[in-house]
């Protein structure tokens, strides 16, 4: 399978990359590890004539406890003992991304900015043409929920929920300068599978910053999928919690793989601060989260099952993290 011709740009600085993008606005893509973009290009999905490779920009590299450069290879993150030790939930999530070969090329930034996925989108041009294309690429109708307004493609990154529960921030470079925003705010749940980011298309994720408090949290990531390799999450549940004594100081739960964006449930978890994480409270929380998510049928497993498993995974994660004295289940 060949790629259609494009011009490959290899800027050495973030500013240069932004400048190239500006010159070709609307007809350029950033290229990180390529493991998401290039399969999509081979399938002729939303092709651009300019590819801006970010691998030659030193500023985007580097792994430290407080900062993960966006071009950090997933395999390097996985292999970094100190980072994995400090953030066990992130370590679990990164180790579950695709396969070791994908992780050798795939990057932290690439996984955060992953293209959303759908049965009707991740197909060849031939396949999509036979159905008249879809809302997300070249067409006018969504085939998952037939209508012309909203794309239901699913966000399938593993890292976003795992980093979101640590209150990570992302450093973003745009034409208007640098900003730092909470990582969870990268994603716009009011948008859809196409308009899923709050950032302008030209923006470059420079790095992920992890606050010191993140290192005091216990964390875990649970991924639902058919195979322990290859597969994107049918559901990803990330939990981070800090206890003071036997009570919760902060609790964060986020899910991915269910909707067009990852979601964090602060409105459900904040009230648990100062409380014991009893079996009953865990069940209530898992139930509330289950009731609020709305997966659609555009991945391998049916949505009703993925919803039920959301509750199961949240409950199991919390039970495993809770002090033995508080949760018995």
């Amino acid at each position: 399978m060949h790629l259609d011709p494009f011009e490959l740009h290899q800027p050495a600085t973030v500013d240069e990359a932004l400048c190239i993008y500006r010159d070709h606005a609307g007809d350029a893509d950033y290229l990180a590890g390529g493991t998401d973009l290039l399969p999509n290009y081979k399938m002729h999905l939303n092709l651009r004539r300019h590819l801006i490779a970010l691998g030659g920009i030193p500023e985007l590299g580097g792994i430290a406890l407080g900062r993960l450069g966006s071009m950090t290879r997933l395999a390097d993150l996985e292999g970094s003992g100190p980072v994995a030790g400090a953030y066990p939930g992130v370590a679990e999530a990164v180790a579950e991304v695709a396969t070791p070969l994908v992780r050798a090329s795939g990057t932290v930034g690439g996984n955060l900015m992953l293209e959303t996925r759908c049965f009707f989108f991740n197909q060849s041009r031939f396949w999509r043409a036979s159905l008249g294309y879809c809302l997300k690429a070249e067409g006018a109708v969504c085939h998952v929920v037939p209508q012309k307004e909203k794309c239901y493609a699913t966000f399938s990154g593993d890292l976003a929920p795992a980093l979101a529960v640590l209150d990570a921030e992302v450093e973003v470079a745009t034409d208007r300068g640098r900003t730092r925003i909470p990582l969870i705010d990268l994603y716009d749940l009011r948008g859809d599978g196409i308009r899923r980011h709050t950032l302008p298309p030209s923006a470059i994720v420079v790095a992920v910053h992890l606050p010191p408090i993140a290192r005091q949290r216990l964390g875990t990531y649970r991924k639902l999928r058919i195979r322990p390799a290859f597969d994107f999450p049918e559901l990803g549940v990330a939990v981070a919690v800090r206890f003071e004594g036997s009570s919760v100081a902060e609790l964060r739960v986020a899910v991915g793989g269910l909707e067009t964006a990852p979601r964090r449930f602060d409105e459900l978890t904040d009230p648990l601060a100062g409380q014991q994480l009893t079996e009953e409270r865990i069940r209530e929380l898992a139930g509330a989260i289950t009731r609020s998510v709305r997966p659609v049928y555009n991945t391998f497993l049916p949505p009703d099952y993925r919803r039920r498993m959301t509750g199961v995974f949240v409950r199991r994660a919390l039970v495993d993290l809770a002090p033995a004295s508080s949760a018995a289940a």
């Binding site: 049965f119 060849s124 058919i226 195979r227 322990p228 390799a229 290859f230 391998f300």
Partner: peptide, 15 residues
């Protein structure tokens, strides 16, 4: 719907 090895689920070594 799944004419691809990613979506046609052949068991992984772990399984």
């Amino acid at each position: 719907m799944n004419p691809a090895l990613l979506d046609y689920k052949i068991l992984a070594p772990d399984q």
